[in-house]
Design a binder for these strands. Structure first.
Length: 501
RNA sequence: GGUCGGGUGGCCGAGUGGCUAGGCAGAGCUCUGCAAAAGCUUCCACAGCGGUUCGAAUCCGCUCUCGACCUCCA
C-alpha cells in the first residue's frame, strides 16, 4: 500500500512517489526565533515529525531540512522598540544574536520535550545571506526583479505574464488570481517604490534603526521574508525536491513567493508535494499574536498561563495533536487536554505492560474471533497512516486493543485465548507504531530511579500493614501518595503497581 | 469585499451513501477490606430547510452560522 498525501498544489490526495527513491528530500518552514514558541507552533513540528518518522519507518532515506529564521525584525517580547534605539550603552542595546540564541535554545528544548527527532539539517537564515544575495542577483539578471532605492522587489506581474502561459501562474498554490489581489491587497509602507503593489521584497534597505544589516550589491540591508527558504531549500535539497511542509497560514504569501522565486532561479517548481497542517484554535479562533490568545509552550508545560487550569506535559500535548488528523483545525480547551492526558496514561500503561511480557509463539488461539480481530486492528495501522497520516484512526485502533491487553493482564481472558504468535506480532507492531512512528514515550521525571525505589519501599510497608489488617497505615500510604500524584494499584494477583499522575 | 474551509452526542475529535470510530465526562454492574485501577454494559449525534435515492450525517441546492487567508504569522 502506497503512502498518500494531500497535496495543496493539486488539492487532492496523491500517491507519494519520491523523485529519487529511496531518497526523500523534505523541507519544513521552521520558527522565527524572535520569541518563544507557542502551542500553535507545536502542530507543524509534531505533524512533520510524524511524517518524517513514517517515511523512515517505510525505509526511505530522508533528508529533513527545517530552517531557523533568525534574520528580520528583532524585538524582545514586551519591550518597546524605542528603548533599543535610544539606549547608548552596548549592554543595554538589543543584541540580536543574544535573542536568537535564547529563543533557539528554548525552541530546541521544546522540540526535545515533544520527542521530535532533530532534522537532518537545521540551517539559519543569517548563515545563508550569501546564497540569498546570489539568488536575488540571478532573479534580477533574468529580469524578474528590480532595484528601487536600495531595495529589491520581485516583479510579480511579469512573472505571472510569462509563467501563466506555462501553466504556473502566480497564485497556483493558494488558488488566487492576480486580478483579485490587485484589487484587495492592502497599502503598505514604501508602496511607491514598487512597480506594483503585489510585488514583494527580495531585499530591503535597512533603515538606520534596523539592527540586523548586511552588505549587498544594493547597499546595506537585510533579506526579504521569503527568499531564505528558497535559498536554503535549493542549497540542501536541490532545485527540485519531494516535500515542502508548513502551516496553512504560510501557503500565501510565503510559499507562493517561494515558488515564484525558485522557479525563476531554477526553472522548476521547487517541490512536488506541498503539505500544510491546519491551525490550532482556541475558542474557535486561530492562536496567534494578533488575537492575544497565545499560550506559550513553557506556560503550557508548567500551567502558568491564566487560561490553563493545570499544567500539561509535552506528551499530553503531542498526543492531543495526534488524536486529530493534521488537516483539520484542532480546538484547544482544558477539557480536551485533560481528556488527552487521561487517555494517554491509559494507553501507555497498557502498552508498557504488554511490552514487558514475553510470549511463546507456539500456542493456538482459543478465541479465534478475538485473535483475528486483534490482527485486523494491527493490520489497519499502516493503512491509516498511508491515508494522509490519519493518526486519529491509528490512535482509535490502539484504544481498541487496550481493553484486550488489560483483560489479559487482569486475567479476564485466558492467556491462550489469543495465539502466542499473535501477541508477539501485536507487541512488535505496537512498539513500532507507538514509539517509533507516533513518537510517544513514557514521561519520566528527574531521579526516577531513586523515586521508584522509595515507592517500592512504601509499597512493601503497605503490604505488610495490609497483611496485619492495619488498614489505617495502608490507606495512609496509598492516600498520601495519591495526593502527590502517585497512584497505587492493587493487582489481581496480589502484586502492586503504581503510576505517576 | 475577494478566495477557501468548516458546522458530528456534555467536551475533543474520526468517518463511509446502507453495517451508525476512538478518547474524556455521565449511568449501571463485576472485581475489591474500602478506594482506585481494570473489565463489562449503557445514555447522548450528525446546524436548519428542501431535493436526488429503495436508503444520506455522507451527494445537490438554499438558509443560518463559525473560521482561515488576502498583512509578520505554524
Amino acid at each position: 500500500m502506497p503512502l498518500k498525501l494531500y497535496n495543496s498544489l493539486t488539492r487532492q490526495k496523491e500517491v507519494f512517489e519520491p523523485l529519487n527513491a529511496p531518497y526523500v528530500g523534505m523541507y519544513v518552514c521552521g520558527p522565527t526565533v524572535s520569541g518563544e514558541s507557542h502551542l500553535g507552533h507545536a502542530r507543524p513540528f509534531i505533524t512533520f515529525d510524524v511524517l518524517y518518522r513514517y517515511l523512515l519507518h517505510a525505509g526511505y532515506k530522508v533528508r529533513y531540512v527545517r530552517n531557523i529564521t533568525d534574520a528580520g525584525h528583532f524585538e524582545e517580547e514586551g519591550k518597546a522598540a524605542e528603548d533599543k534605539i535610544t539606549s547608548k550603552a552596548i549592554l543595554e542595546k538589543l543584541e540580536p544574536m543574544e535573542l536568537v540564541q535564547k529563543y533557539t535554545h528554548l525552541y530546541h528544548w521544546a522540540m526535545d520535550q515533544f520527542n521530535n527527532l532533530p532534522p537532518s539539517i537545521e540551517p539559519t537564515a543569517t548563515g545563508h545571506i550569501i546564497e540569498q544575495i546570489e539568488m536575488i542577483k540571478k532573479i534580477i539578471a533574468d529580469g524578474y526583479a528590480y532595484e528601487a532605492n536600495g531595495s529589491v522587489y520581485f516583479d510579480v506581474i511579469k512573472y505571472n505574464e510569462v509563467y501563466a502561459k506555462k501553466n504556473q501562474p502566480y497564485g497556483i498554490l493558494s488558488g488566487r488570481n492576480l486580478e483579485d489581489q490587485l484589487d484587495t491587497t492592502r497599502e503598505l509602507e514604501n508602496q511607491d517604490e514598487k512597480k506594483n503593489k503585489v510585488d514583494f521584497a527580495l531585499w530591503k534597505k535597512a533603515p538606520v534603526e534596523h539592527i540586523m544589516r548586511w552588505q549587498s550589491p544594493w547597499g546595506e540591508g537585510f533579506p526579504g521574508w521569503h527568499i531564505e527558504c528558497s535559498a536554503m531549500a535549493t542549497k540542501y535539497l536541490g532545485k527540485k525536491f519531494d516535500i515542502h511542509g508548513g502551516g496553512m497560514d504560510l501557503q500565501f504569501p510565503h510559499h507562493e513567493c517561494e515558488i515564484a522565486q525558485s522557479t525563476v532561479c531554477n526553472h522548476e517548481m521547487p517541490a512536488r508535494y506541498w503539505v500544510h497542517n491546519n491551525m490550532i484554535t482556541i475558542n474557535g479562533r486561530k492562536m496567534g499574536k494578533s488575537y492575544n490568545n497565545v499560550v506559550k509552550l513553557s506556560e503550557l508545560f508548567d500551567g502558568s498561563h491564566p487560561i490553563l487550569t493545570q499544567a500539561y506535559s509535552p506528551m499530553t500535548v503531542r498526543f492531543f495533536i495526534l488524536q486529530s488528523q493534521y488537516r483539520g483545525t484542532l480546538d484547544f480547551s482544558n477539557e480536551a487536554l485533560q481528556a488527552s492526558e487521561k487517555a494517554l496514561r491509559r494507553l501507555m500503561d497498557a502498552f508498557e505492560w504488554l511490552k514487558a511480557q514475553s510470549f511463546v509463539a507456539d500456542t493456538m488461539a482459543k478465541d479465534v474471533q478475538l485473535d483475528a480481530q486483534l490482527k485486523t486492528w494491527v493490520d489497519e495501522l499502516p493503512e491509516f497512516m498511508e491515508d494522509d497520516l490519519n493518526t486519529a484512526k491509528v490512535v482509535a485502533n490502539l484504544f481498541e486493543m487496550v481493553p484486550v491487553i488489560n483483560s489479559l493482564k487482569d486475567k479476564h481472558i485466558a492467556a491462550d485465548a489469543i495465539a502466542g504468535s499473535t501477541w508477539q506480532w501485536v507487541q512488535a507492531q505496537l512498539i513500532i507504531y507507538i514509539e517509533k512512528v507516533l513518537g510517544l514515550r513514557v514521561e519520566s521525571g528527574a531521579n526516577r530511579q531513586q523515586l521508584n525505589g522509595v515507592i517500592h519501599l512504601l509499597v512493601e510497608i503497605r503490604k505488610e500493614a495490609k497483611a496485619k489488617k492495619d488498614f489505617a497505615t495502608s490507606d495512609k500510604i496509598r492516600n498520601q501518595l495519591m495526593e502527590m500524584g502517585i497512584q497505587i494499584k492493587d493487582e489481581k494477583d496480589g502484586e502492586v503497581s503504581f503510576t505517576f499522575a
